[in-house]
Nucleic acid binder design. Structure first.
Length: 471
RNA sequence: GCUCCCAUCGUCUAGUGGCCUAGGACGUGGCCCUCUCAAGGCCAAAACACGGGUUCGACUCCCGUUGGGAGCACCA
């Protein structure tokens, strides 16, 4: 195939939705795979609902996911004159006609038809009236063929189509002069020379009408590929209320773009048994032929697993960089990358599923003092540990090289001196003293990362708490 | 209601008439490892929606049923 041109055409009426993000990803991947170009178009003809903020949110989301576009963004709102021209041209060529039926009249006739048990499409009342521009408030309707089939070979769904007579003459220009969505889309896809329209399956049944528009415009339609919808947990349509749907939201919860991209790619598309795909692999391996036809549920558990995988394997500098904002948020302070923090992050990689979790586990390193988790303190900070803990404090204070090995030796000595104290009995209280909670990397490493001075201060603080504050 | 579409473990999927005692991954359960939490290793449970055909042979092809989805606007 000659270099294809694909496009992603979101309407900026909210944030970037995971369904939209996946559609964008597929368009991007298809273009990259075939050495084509990927164009971004903003469908903001609905002035009421479109905002600049949400346009920016969509752009940010795409950038974050690493889905870069080659052209655009082109805004439909800036092309209104062109759509008007096209409608005039359609009128001139008698491919369309003016219609003065009001909404009320239409509704009335529609109800009557349905009551009579027949199917409603526009009844063509104004079709042969040859109404001129002076006919008063009117819409413009496309003249649809009375017979024949509007068919295409969908790249995902295969042979598709609908009889023209079942569609009826659809409106292409509203009575206020604004073009309808389908007209704008077709005009843009023609003029942007889009070769492959890859979009959500919710547009599958809109396609016949758009085909009629291409015919009226005397243009060859592009190839269509409809990708299955992502549905919610119960198999129903995604609901903003029930399901997490915003890319931005996942981002704020600490998911990595690498994981999101991989997750999105694998919903409704597969390449054999492969689960892990880098950005380059998605571009290299993506084929429309391997896109499923059935709608799919997005599984948050799988995303969590993917996220942990990328957390484990991401470049260390990059990871630290991504973590900082989260760490600043959970600690409430400015955080500089330090060698200690970098070391801790290495230990936290396989213990965190999100950047948020990682930040919470790293918090103890960047704050001045930790607050004891009530449950952890109740369980591990008990009076009977005081002698051993005090002994450990003394031994650790005496260390010249505050590294893992010597620290471990200190622990062994203390345990032996206190009736062969089980490791857990000593490690857990120390862990609570150091971090405030009962979860952290291995205790020797945790101590080493925190440093002798701060570690001793926290153990001393715990001893003070045990002697004076605890009942 | 009408039109169109879809249907393999809980979820994402492999499978294109015999390689299937239906494979993988996530999740779930168990065991091992273990100073906590993880990670890791091993094991397990878990699916071809149903009914008819076609065929020597159907998860794979055809028809129907059931279930699910999308579209049916002077929204996008």
């Amino acid at each position: 195939m000659s270099a294809p041109r694909t496009r992603f055409a979101p309407s900026p009426t909210g944030f970037l939705h995971i369904g939209g993000a996946r559609t964008a990803l597929y368009n991007w991947a298809f273009a990259r795979h075939h050495g084509g170009r990927f164009v971004l178009r903003i469908e903001d003809t609905d002035r009421e609902r479109s905002t600049l903020e949400s346009e920016q949110a969509v752009l940010d989301g795409l950038e974050w996911l690493g889905i870069e576009w080659d052209e655009g963004p082109v805004r439909q709102s800036e092309r209104m004159d062109r759509y008007r021209e096209v409608v005039e041209e359609l009128l001139r060529k008698d491919r369309a006609y003016r219609c003065v039926c009001t909404r009320e009249e239409l509704e009335e006739r529609k109800q009557a038809t349905i009551a009579a048990g027949r199917k409603w499409t526009y009844d063509g009342r104004c079709r042969d009236l040859a109404l001129g521009p002076g006919c008063g408030p009117h819409t413009v309707r496309l003249r649809l063929p009375a017979e024949g089939r509007l068919a295409w070979d969908d790249l995902v769904f295969g042979p598709s189509g609908q009889d023209a007579r079942e569609i009826g003459d659809m409106i292409v220009r509203r009575s206020d002069g604004a073009p309808l969505y389908h007209l704008a889309v077709v005009v843009d896809d023609v003029e942007m020379r889009i070769s492959h329209v890859i979009r959500g399956a919710d547009h599958h049944s809109n396609t016949p009408f758009q085909l009629a528009l291409y015919a009226a415009l005397d243009r060859t339609p592009p190839l269509f590929a409809h990708v299955p919808l992502i549905v919610g947990r119960d198999g129903k349509k995604l609901s903003k209320r029930r399901d997490p749907v915003s890319v931005q939201q996942f981002r704020e919860e600490g998911y990595l773009p690498e994981a999101m991209r991989n997750w999105l790619a694998r919903i409704g598309w597969s390449h054999g048994d492969q689960e892990l795909f880098s950005k380059a692999e998605i571009a290299e391996l993506f084929e429309l032929a391997n896109v499923h036809r059935a709608s799919a549920q997005a599984d948050p558990a799988k995303l969590l697993w993917l996220n942990q995988h990328y957390l484990k394997t991401l470049d260390r500098t990059l990871l630290l960089d991504r973590l900082l904002p989260f760490l600043e948020r959970v600690s409430g302070r400015r955080v500089q990358p330090t060698p200690e923090l970098a070391r801790l992050v290495e230990l936290l990689r396989e213990r965190s599923r999100t950047l948020q979790e990682m930040a919470e586990l790293a918090r103890f390193l960047v704050v001045e003092e930790v607050a004891y988790d009530a449950k952890a303190a109740a369980k591990h900070l008990r009076r009977e540990i005081v002698p051993a803990l005090a002994d450990l404090h003394a031994r650790l204070a005496a260390l010249e090289d505050f590294a893992e090995g010597p620290i471990e030796a200190a622990f062994q000595e203390v345990r032996a001196r206190h009736g062969d104290l089980p490791m857990g009995k000593l490690a857990q209280p120390v862990r609570v003293a150091l971090t405030g909670g009962e979860v952290s990397p291995p205790i020797f490493e945790t101590l080493a990362v925190l440093g002798q001075h701060r570690a001793l201060a926290r153990i001393a603080e715990a001893l003070h708490y045990l002697r004076h504050e605890r009942d």
